[in-house]
């Protein structure tokens, strides 16, 4: 029983990180039909941002890093979108390979800049300790994800820009004929999505070391969240991330770490038998 309780914070914090990563993916995939494999390297960039800021803010680096990492990763995403991805809209398979090339290059850049071995980011002293079975650092990650989801929800539903984003996601041509500058909207979505990956990277420094291949560990699972949650669906991403994070950590707990991923994979395939397009589907009459 105690084991079950102890596993909960781990599962929840993994779910929170997955959610932060998957939000960016689900929107870029849903809105632009783009699969961005370099998304994992934006996580890595966020984590290294926290590492670098230690020289400046010492143990509070994590806090300072949150906005900075958002900007750094967001700008990287924006540059990638402008320079390459926008030429490939609607060709998800080509963008997948293209951005994988980008991700290889970025990993090598990180290796050259920071060295191949992992580095450690000191977590703030006020995050040490725990409330019952819930360590403060994992609680912090959870709060970060909740805060981000609320912010995204407000942005999407209460701001003019967010409504434009929804319009483009639902029907790009119609949105364009209604006078929406879809290119602009794409840039913004990409910026925000990549920025969230940067925040996820900062969160990851609280629970583990930072290395050039940090992003690759999470990107596959994050894509599974997108598949299970449904394209461009905030609700779907939240539920799927929670389910996947918890399933992952409990499968590890009850069987062993090596079987957990296989179990998750089988569950996803089984789930797709009932909901092949994910939990929530954007209804449309279009025939693909």
């Amino acid at each position: 029983m105690e084991g079950i309780l102890n596993q909960l914070p781990i599962g929840l914090s993994i779910a929170a990180v997955l959610l932060l990563i998957a939000l960016g993916l689900t929107f870029t995939f849903g809105q632009m039909g783009v699969i961005n494999m370099a998304h994992g390297e934006f996580i890595m960039a966020g984590a290294y941002t926290a590492y670098l800021l230690q020289g400046f803010a010492d143990r509070n680096a994590v806090l300072v890093a949150l906005p900075v990492a958002f900007l750094v990763a967001g700008l990287m995403g924006l540059i990638l979108e402008r320079a390459a991805i926008r030429h490939f809209y609607g060709r998800p398979l080509d963008t997948l390979l293209l951005t994988w090339g980008v991700s290889l290059v970025l990993q090598q850049v990180a290796r050259d800049l920071f060295g191949a071995p992992n580095v450690q980011v000191q977590s703030p002293t006020w995050l040490q300790g725990s409330l019952g079975p819930m360590p403060y650092n994992r609680m912090f990650i959870l709060l970060l994800a909740v805060g981000s989801v609320v912010a995204i929800w407000v942005y999407m539903n209460r701001s003019a820009q967010g409504r434009r984003m929804q319009a483009v996601m639902q029907n790009r041509q119609l949105a364009a004929t209604s006078g929406i500058n879809t290119g602009r909207v794409d840039q913004r979505t990409f910026f925000i999505g990549s920025g969230l990956a940067g925040i996820a990277g900062v969160a990851l420094t609280l629970i583990g070391p930072v290395g050039p291949t940090l992003g690759t560990y999470y990107i596959v699972d994050a894509f599974l969240v997108v598949v299970a949650g449904g394209l461009g669906q905030l609700r779907g991403a939240v539920i799927a991330a929670l389910a996947l994070g918890l399933l992952n950590s409990y499968a590890e707990f009850w069987t062993n770490a090596s079987l957990a991923k296989v179990i998750v994979f089988v569950v996803i395939i089984a789930f797709l038998q009932f909901r092949p397009q994910g939990l929530f589907v954007l209804r449309s009459r279009a025939l693909t």
Partner: peptide, 13 residues
């Protein structure tokens, strides 16, 4: 893309 992602997840697992 869904199929691509699933096959990739299989490789990782």
């Amino acid at each position: 893309a869904y199929f691509a992602i699933l096959t990739q997840a299989l490789a990782a697992a």
